[in-house]
Amino acid sequence: MSPIVKLLAQRIALGLLLLFLVSILIFAGTIVLPGDVAQSILGQSATPEALANLRAELGLDEPPVARYFNWLFGVFQGDLGTALTSGQDIATAIGKRLGNTLFLAFWAAIIAVPLAIFLGLLAVRYRERWPDKLISAVTLASISVPEFLIGYILMFFIGVKLGWFPPTAISYRPDADLLTKLSAVALPIAVLTLVVLAHMMRMTRAAILNVMQSAYIETAELKGLRMFTIIWRHAFPNSVAPVVNVVMLNLAYLVVGVVVVEVVFVYPGMGGYLVDHVSKRDIPVVQACGLIFAAVYIGLNLIADVVSILANPRLRHPK
């Protein structure tokens, strides 16, 4: 087997192992800690018999390990259980919302990725001059600004004062046509874009600057090539791997951003669903959402690693 296949197989196996361990962590986090689901459903005045019945019904009287594996096998079969608060099937509820969330994240990524790479290149081209300094300042600010501030500022000025786009995503309907949908979620998409843009830009800049230190760049400079040609023809192809890595890591960061942004704009996605059910203490829903968020996050990190393995010529053409 070629070393690259072996390396990839190892990395993917590691990702799966990580996901398995995270599922234990999420399950254990809601089991080991004090608190009784049956008690919180029925309230303080419940009779001991009613409590015992409900526990048996929910499978709470089984040992934790058995419950964990029951849950895990259910997950594999697409059965995430039923929500305690509403009695609805969790998989159906999540199915709809996951699509909505992915719609949001997809459009944010489509806008943010090319923009970030372009601005990152610009910052390298004009290093230590005003475009670079401006980009650095914006980055510093955006790291220190909570997502909801960007959200409310856009909502307040663009949504309410200027009235260009609907201030909240209440009018969003999954079955409407694309343009209507996009205009309903224009502001949430803008916020998510801004949230990841700065990080991506900064890391792209760092990745390309790193390549710019190489000897072949100096050679290109001494040949008298134009700065932009050097960056575009020599530096950029060699920094594709780190840049893709940066992109994937930041898309993973969207996972966190999406939770807050959905709450700000009242958008019917996974983030809002999770937050809602944390305060209702609906543990099966929280576990299912936590697992899905974790899986997406780990998956994107895995893709980042796979791409950097594939893009490394030393690994592709072993001696």
């Binding site: 995270v22 800690l33 966190v256 944390v278 936590g290």
Partner: peptide, 12 residues
């Protein structure tokens, strides 16, 4: 390996 916010929500 998972975002702190998600883990915090699960625990809370």
């Amino acid at each position: 390996s998972i975002p702190s916010l998600i883990l915090a929500l699960v625990i809370l």
